[in-house]
């Protein structure tokens, strides 16, 4: 039985120093529960991710006039930021989609307002303020009474009129 030459041995050692192709360095650091709690939240249609809080239609109207109306118009109809409320339909020759007749989930309205609005101070609305502004817009949509209140339980319970108006094209429904 012949011994491997010194040169062959060196080559073999060199080869062994390379990791298998599928191996990766695994440098991800565990995220602790405390750190997880500090991450931004995803808000799902069933209300998962919504923080505790509450806001009234009346408070929402005041906040809306102060923080939102300059871009979205006094009743969500005019403004450079695009209209929020439509007085038209989503069928017919002049289709006019907006929150009240097109958006499928009320949670989306809360989530986008919380993370993105107002655009000159994104993320500046508190959870309570976001519930209030959402309540006002849902009132303008005819989906919440003038004395209505929203919180993390009542918001996801609101059924938007066009909830079932969407067909999934490149994804499979569960």
């Amino acid at each position: 039985m012949s011994m491997p030459s010194a040169a062959t041995g060196a080559a073999l050692a060199c080869l062994l120093a390379f990791a298998a192709h599928a191996e990766t360095p695994r440098l991800g650091q565990p995220i602790s529960a405390a750190e997880l709690a500090r991450l931004p939240r995803s808000v799902f249609p069933d209300g998962r991710g919504l923080p505790p809080g509450r806001g009234t239609v009346a408070d929402g109207e005041t906040l809306y006039d102060q923080r939102c109306a300059s871009c979205h118009g006094p009743k969500g109809i005019d403004g450079s930021g695009g209209h929020l409320i439509s007085d038209g339909a989503i069928t017919g020759p002049d289709q006019d989609p907006a929150i009240n007749n097109y958006w499928p989930y009320a949670t989306t309205l809360w989530d986008f307002t919380r993370r993105a609005m107002p655009m000159n101070a994104p993320g500046s609305l508190t959870a309570d303020e976001t519930y209030a502004v959402t309540a006002w817009l849902l009132h303008l949509s005819g989906l919440l009474d003038a004395d209505g209140v929203l919180d993390e339980k009542t918001l996801p319970a609101i059924r938007m009129p066009n909830r079932d108006g969407f067909d999934w094209i490149d994804a499979r429904r569960p």
């Binding site: 989503i90 108006g165 969407f166």
Partner: peptide, 9 residues
């Protein structure tokens, strides 16, 4: 027809 296409990726 008022339906919307969603997840048209």
């Amino acid at each position: 027809d008022g339906r919307a296409r969603q997840f048209t990726f």
